[in-house]
Design a protein around this nucleic acid. Structure first.
Lengths: 235, 235
DNA sequence: CGCGGATTTGACCTAGTTCAATAAACGTGG
DNA sequence: CCACGTTTATTGAACTAGGTCAAATCCGCG
């Protein structure tokens, strides 16, 4: 049982002013003067796969901007069952709920080495109070999260295992620049699509056999979008 | 194919200042002066079951506060499939996404006669710009919606048909003051739990047979929470 | 009373689960 | 760099929950 070993990954204070992906993130609209309002440090962290950003139920002291990599939000059921409710990538924000004064809703774990910025709750709250320029972005992030959650339900939890898996391949390919698709571990796939690991494995195997996907290197695939779309639609 | 017959249900301009459920809704924190900022009318509407508030993809001109009744948010898949992604009741807000400048994500339809307030986008935007007191509430509503969406996925789309149905009964009973539970049409139940109407029907029938629920009058049930919780947990 | 939609029930069938065994992949220390 | 233990993925065979198709019943309503 490791608690988050976040401390180990400290890179330094982030320089938000010159952030390369600022147009993607929460501080997109901020102007020079607004940055004066940031008094607590925004830290930059490099986190390896497997690291936990926070646990479900923890009191929220910070939200996290994902600058690169991939993070999963996991929710546990009373019966021990486990569902992955969202995947976050560059530009997404984990732990928005703390800005509404609530504890974390999920556990957040790194799937692919991630660079994240830790935004203390007070920094965001202060900025939100003092400058209206953050409102719009914050609203956008909420809206994005909600749209993602709804899509997740309708796309990845509706239809046959083949359809859902096809949609997952497409979805994941959208998360990487190169055309390739890094598939997740079979257990995680199961927790996303509401399938057993066995069925996940079998379905991926079937797709390989049919040539719908091609395994370039272990668990990394080249996709045939045409065929995948056909399957996703009910082929 | 009826378009929304919202016009037919116009009750008059809402008097937000004296709203009976103001502490529940978006304008909870507003003060006397803030109401001066409302220039466009907030309309109050009484809508019968079956009425459509808006369609997916429509350009958003207003959000809606639900004051009573029950509203479903429906999302359609490319293949014609249909999922209900959320149920809204008193205090909830439909169409928040328009405040982030996006078109409606879902279709919103009334399930049980509903009293709603129509909040023109500009009213909320103006208030949001000019008074910070709305921010907090708006944030809460976003956060509520997101939590509801995630719960929906983990509770109502995970486990066996019996478990999901048991959780739906419990969930619905939470939406009415009297201890009773008004169940939805079997087709809607299917669209919520990701089941066919037949399985929905069979499962409800089984629960009746087992005495887990008791049909007081057509489609209205008295629940045995103990047994339902047991089933929900995997009995 | 008779019509149209929703619900229930039955019989059959298949997609996906379960249980169990095997085989890769991966990290670790020698 | 290789042997070894651990984890993770794959595959098989038997089983079952839930889907499918079709018929029967119920219900509100003009």
């Amino acid at each position: 049982m490791r608690r988050s070993q976040i401390e180990a990954a400290w890179l330094g204070k982030a320089e938000c002013r010159t952030c390369a992906i600022r147009d993607l993130v929460l501080f997109a609209d901020l102007q020079e003067a607004d940055f004066q309002l940031i008094h607590l440090p925004v830290e930059e962290l490099m986190l390896d796969a497997g690291t936990t950003l926070y646990h479900s139920g923890d009191e929220g002291v910070a939200a996290f901007t994902i600058r690169s990599g991939l993070v999963k939000l996991v929710q546990y059921l009373p019966d021990g069952n486990r569902r992955i409710v969202r995947l976050l990538r560059a530009g997404d924000v984990a732990g928005l709920e703390v800005l509404a004064g609530r504890p974390y809703e999920h556990a957040a774990q790194v799937l692919q080495t991630a660079l994240v910025c830790r935004l203390p709750r007070e920094v965001v709250e202060r900025l939100n109070r003092e400058t209206p320029r953050l409102h719009r972005q914050l609203m956008n992030k909420w809206s994005d999260s909600l749209r993602l959650a709804d899509e997740w339900l309708t796309e990845l939890n509706t239809g046959t295992a083949r359809q859902r898996m096809a949609r997952l391949f497409v979805h994941l390919s959208g998360l990487s620049e190169d055309g390739l698709c890094r598939m997740l571990g079979r257990e995680d796939v199961g927790a996303i699509l509401s399938l057993t690991t066995e069925t996940s494995s079998r379905t991926v195997a079937e797709f390989k056999r049919l040539g719908v996907v091609q395994e370039i290197r272990p668990n990394t695939f080249r996709l045939d979008r045409g065929q995948l779309d056909a399957i996703a639609a009910g082929g």
